[in-house]
Design a protein around this nucleic acid. Structure first.
Length: 480
RNA sequence: GGCCCCAUCGUCUAGUGGUUAGGACACUGGGUUCUCAUCCCAGCAACCGGAGUUCGAUCCUCCGUGGGGUCACCA
């Protein structure tokens, strides 16, 4: 049991989960699965001021909507619970007390104003802002007095001076810091809640997390955590800091300013969860054979954080679009029907859904394009006489429409075979230019230059609508 | 600014002390075709710079440059 792989994702319920977080979650999930370990979901709700209501539920939902799940955590239980940090306050206070007793931590009564002033001053001197340990000099009596007077305080870690602090990152190797660069971290806030730094270390230890895989932006915080592991004499987990997503243009950390970034928003735009996961997989990592389309199962089998690339990666939407298209094309119609349901406009003719999907499946890049791709099947179209007459004169087009109408009106059955045979025959017998004639018919019956194949489309459209539109086209040209 | 991380086509990457530096997306051209899309074929395109180590560096070392991250009683 000692070597069990236990990974975790520890989001805060402060708003929609970022796509980058989902990508990291995937890696934690996959690695635990690969080693028949456990993937833990822990909620880090230690900042009461930023918490949003329904945040925990939103986190659980989005994970499930991406087709993933967790083994221990809210809604699942587990023997290391509770998995919500606000329910573990006593634990953090207990461990803080331990550090206090061992003089590895100390009370700090400094006001926010003083700290801010201090920071401003140090910044002005071009130095890294650091707490000046003002309260470390307090005598025991002074401290007791302040506590008795109910003065607010925080507890800070007493960081050793000039000590080499290093850790092994699975992706990058050894990373070293000097402890003098590290601030005396606040461990316990004045409201009794722990800071992130205390809470992660305590919980990762207590929950026996063996691999901490988190975003690269945590590298500079890791020495603080290492210090804490040392202060408690706890064994460190293995660390892997995952490269972050850059904006699609490759400039800067992917941010709201340059577009939508929540994991939910991609689902809302009609990207399939499997396609998104696949995209996350191959950003910064490739399987040995370099294939780019792979299933979750295959990924679970092959992924290892040690093979991750070191550099941050641009979130290339073009590639995502390509992957999404690949996945849509692989979908069986019955399956596509289910998945596209929530993107259908209210006036979409559900009885024709299957037939229409057959026609547009290979043209869909995102599910939310369905309306744009199919509206001519169920909405009035705009006929443009200029377009109709673009490659032929008025007389010819009227003749084409007349002859077509006559034949189509007398079709025995409105099916693909009859339609194709009849129209092709008309074109051949009259020696009409095929491109012009077919395009004119497409324009007249579907109202657009770009569409699924003509015969299939008008078959689905039905005789009534098709013939009406052809008549309208004729009238329009005659009126010109 | 301090500290830390990173550096192969536009993007995501493979790769090696000696290779025509490979693939995918995107882009361009062609084929199939009633348009578009799919599919197939072809093309364009990269080792950040400078020293050093070496018979030989894209690969190893150092410096520079560039990009990124981080410096809260937020995570």
């Amino acid at each position: 049991m000692q070597n069990l792989v236990r990974t975790r994702m520890a989001p805060s319920p402060t708003g929609d989960m970022h796509v980058g977080s989902m990508a990291i979650l995937l890696k934690n999930y996959a690695y635990a699965k690969k080693h028949a370990g456990k993937f833990i979901l822990r909620i880090e709700d230690t900042d009461k001021t930023r918490e949003v209501k329904g945040g925990v539920k939103a986190i659980q939902d989005i994970i499930n909507d991406y087709g993933l799940d967790w083994d221990e955590g809210p809604g699942k239980g587990g023997k290391f619970g509770p998995y919500i940090q606000s329910q573990r306050l006593g634990l953090y206070q207990k461990y803080t007390q331990q550090l206090l007793n061992e003089t590895k931590a100390y009370h700090c009564f400094c006001s926010k104003e003083r700290l801010e002033e201090l920071r401003d001053k140090m910044r002005a001197e071009k130095k890294a802002p650091k707490y000046d340990r003002h309260c470390l000099g307090l005598s025991e009596a002074e401290k007791e007095e302040k506590i008795k007077n109910k003065e607010k305080f925080v507890v800070r870690l007493r960081v050793p001076d000039n000590k080499n602090i290093s850790f092994i990152d699975l992706i990058r190797g050894e990373i070293a810091f000097n402890s003098s660069e590290i601030d005396d971290q606040v461990l316990l806030k004045s409201d009794g809640y722990p800071t992130y730094h205390l809470a992660v270390v305590v919980d990762d230890h207590l929950m026996q997390i063996s691999y901490v895989m988190r975003g690269e932006e945590w590298i500079s915080s890791t020495p603080k955590h290492v210090l804490l592991y040392q202060a408690f004499s706890w064994q460190q987990p293995k660390f892997a800091h995952i490269p972050i997503f850059l904006n699609p243009d490759g400039k800067g950390k992917m941010s709201k300013r340059k577009g939508t970034v929540s994991a939910r928003s991609f689902l809302d735009r009609g990207y399939l969860p499997e396609a998104l996961l696949n995209f996350f997989m191959i950003l910064g990592w490739t399987p040995k054979d370099q294939r780019e389309i792979l299933s979750l199962e295959e990924y679970v089998e092959e992924f290892d954080p040690r093979d991750l690339n070191k550099n941050s990666v641009a979130f290339d939407l073009k590639k995502l679009d390509w992957i999404n298209g690949v996945y849509i094309r692989k979908l069986k119609i019955e399956n596509l029907k289910l998945k596209i349901n929530k993107f259908l406009p209210s006036d979409f003719p559900k009885d024709k859904l299957g037939k229409i999907l057959v026609l547009v499946r290979e043209r869909l890049v995102r599910l939310d394009e369905i309306e744009e791709l199919t509206n001519f099947f169920y909405r009035d179209i705009d006929l443009d006489s200029n377009l109709l007459l673009k490659k032929a004169d008025q007389m010819l087009v009227v003749e084409q429409l007349n002859k077509s109408l006559k034949k189509l009106e007398n079709l025995e059955a409105w099916n693909l075979e009859n339609l194709e045979k009849t129209i092709r025959k008309l074109q051949e017998e009259n020696n009409w230019h095929r491109g012009q004639y077919f395009m004119m018919l497409r324009l007249a019956s579907l109202g657009r230059k770009v569409s699924p194949p003509l015969f299939e489309s008008i078959e689905v459209l039905g005789s009534e609508i098709t013939l009406n539109r052809l008549r309208q086209a004729k009238d329009l040209i005659n009126d010109k």
